[in-house]
Design a binder for these strands. Sequence first.
RNA 1: GCCGAGAUAGCUCAGUGGCAGAGCAUUCCCAUGGUAAGGGAAAGGCCCCGGGUUCAAAUCCCGGUCUCGGCUCCA
Length: 579
Amino acid sequence: MSQIEKIRHSLSHIMAHAVKDLYKEAVLGMGPATSEGFYYDFGNVKISDTDFPQIEKRMRELIKQQIPFQEEIKSKEEAKEMFKDEPYKIEIIEEMEKDKVSVYRSGDFVDICSGPHIKNTKEINPNAFKLDRAAGAYFKGSEENPMLQRIYGLAFENKEKLEEYLKMREEAEERDHRKIGREMELFLFDEEVGQGLPLYLPKGAMLRHVLMDYVLNTYLYNNHQIVSTPHIAREDLWQHSGHLKFYSGDMYGPLSVEERNYRLKPMNCPFHVKMYKSRVRSYKELPIRWSEMGTVYRYEKSGEMHGLTRPRGFTQDDTHIICAKKQLEQEIITSLKITKHIYHTLGMEDLIFKLSIRDPKKSENYFGNNKDWEMAEKALKSSLSSFGLSEYELDEGGAAFYAPKIDIDAVDAMGRSWQLSTIQVDFNLTSRFNMNYVNEKGEQETPFMIHRALLGSIERFLGVYIEHTKGDFPFWLSPEQVWVVPISEKNVSYAKEIYQKLREERIRVSLKGTSENLSKTIRNGELQKIPYLLVVGEKEEKEKKVNIRSRKEKQETKSLEETVEKLKKEAHAKIVAIN
RNA sequence: GCCGAGAUAGCUCAGUGGCAGAGCAUUCCCAUGGUAAGGGAAAGGCCCCGGGUUCAAAUCCCGGUCUCGGCUCCA
C-alpha cells in the first residue's frame, strides 16, 4: 500500500476518533480510504457540513499529539468484548471467518482494521486534508440496512495536490452539462412537467436532431432499415416478453384504456419481434437489421436522476439484428466497427470494452438455459478477439436478464468513463416469441437477435458529450454553425448575400443585426460557442471578401467563394460504408 | 426510495421578523461601430406550494413539491 493510501486510511481513523470525542453517542460503521481521500460512517448521530470546522479542529489537535498507530491481534471473543458498545462492529466481527481479529490502536481510539497504517500521525501533512461533504450511506452498501451518516474527507500528499484536485473539480463543475445546457439554451426540466423529463429548446433539439440524423444515416448506408413503433402497448405483450416478470420494477404502472391495461414501453424489442413475425421469413432475408430512434420510459427512483445522463424518458438508437447462428459473429464484429467509427467521428476515441456475463450465483435472475448462455457468451468473446481486442474487462453479473452483452464505455476529456453503447446477444426473446425462419433445407429454425444501441441513449450521450466538449461542438454538429456579422448598417445587404449563399448549402447560419456593438456581438458569439463568425465591413465588401473568425483556427480573410467552399466542405458529417 | 443541504426577477446571487434588492439578460431612446461587455431610461416578484406561530412572516415552525451532494439502482 502506498504512503498516501496509508495516510488516507489513517485519517479516517483520526476522523472517527475526533467524532467520538465530540459526539459521545456516535457509533462506528466503516471507514476506508478512497481514491481522493477517505470516509467514515457513523450511526446514532447527525452531522452536517456546518459541524466540519469543529471536527477538523479536533483532528488537527490529535495529529499534533503525534499519536502512534499500533496493531494488536485479538480473538473474536476478545474483540466482541472490546467493541461491546458498537453494534455495527459486532456484526462485522461475527461475519469474519477466522478467529483472529486485527485491531489498530491510535491513542485512546481503537478500530477493527487489517491495516496497514502510518506509524505516527506526524506523517500526516495537516494542510493537505479537509472534510468534504456529509452524506447518507447504507451500512455495508445495502438498502436493507440502516442508513448511517457518512463524512467524506479529501487528503493528498501536500497542499498543492489538494488544491489541484479542487481545481479539477471546479473544472468538472464548469463542464456540467446541466449548467451548459441552461447557459446555451439547449434543454430544461420543468417542475410541473415532471422529474427526469427533458424539454429540448431549439438549439438542443437541433443538436439532438443532427446527431440522430448522422447515426441513423450511417446505419442506413450500412444496410440497416428504419422502423418505427408506438410508445405504449397492451400489458399482455410485456407479459409475453417477460418484461413484467423481470423488469416491472423499472416500468410505469398500467394505463387503463377501455378496461384494458397498457404500459409505457421500457424497451423497443417486443415491437420489432412482432414485425419480424408478421409473416414467414426466409434465410435469404437474414440478417435483418432494423433501427429505430425509440423513445422509452423507465422508472428511476427520485434520487437517481441526473440531468440528461439519467432521465426517466429517453430515446435509444436501438437496432435489432435478427440473424442465423453462423452470421452472429460477423454481425457483432461489424457492430463493434460501426461503434468505433461513430465515436471516432465524434472525437471520442478512447473506448473501454467490457464483456458482461451472468452472475453464476444468481441464475434465477436470468432467462434461459446454461448451454445457450455459454454459446452466446462465447460468440461475444470470439467477436471481441476477431475485432482485435484480446484484453477487455469482464463484468460478472452485468448481463441483462435476457442476454450477455458487450458494453462500451467512452472516456471523456476529463478522463471519466461513461457506459454508453451496448451490444447484446439474445436467444431468449426469439424462443419466447417463437421466432422462426425457413432455412436452406426448408426446415424451421430459430434465429438469434442482437440488441444494439451504439450511442446508448441519445440523452445520456448528449449529457456526456456536452461535458466532453464543454459545449464546443464540432462544426458539423453545432446547432448554430455560422453567424454573419455586418459591421454597420451599410454592410447589411452584403452580409445578406453571404447569408443566402450559406443557406443554399444547408448551413445553419444566422444574420446578425447592427443594434449592438461589433465587440458585443463577437463576445456573444464566443460565449455561445458559434464555430464561425463571419465579419464584414466596408473593407471586405469592397473586395468581395469575408473575415473569418473561427474558434479553432487563426483569424483570416478569404474571398466570398473560398469562404463558402471551405464551410460547405466541413458543414455536414460524411456517411461512410464500414466493413 | 434513503440521508443531508437548498429554493428570492429569465440567469447568478444579496437580504434574515417591520416598504422586495444588485449585476447580467429583456424592452425603449441615444450612439453606426473593426473582432470578448458604448451610454441612458423603463419594465420585470403569489420571495417554490399548503398550513401554523405572531400585531406583523420571504425570514420562525410543520407538511409537500422540485433541485443539488451522496447511498442504492442503472442505458
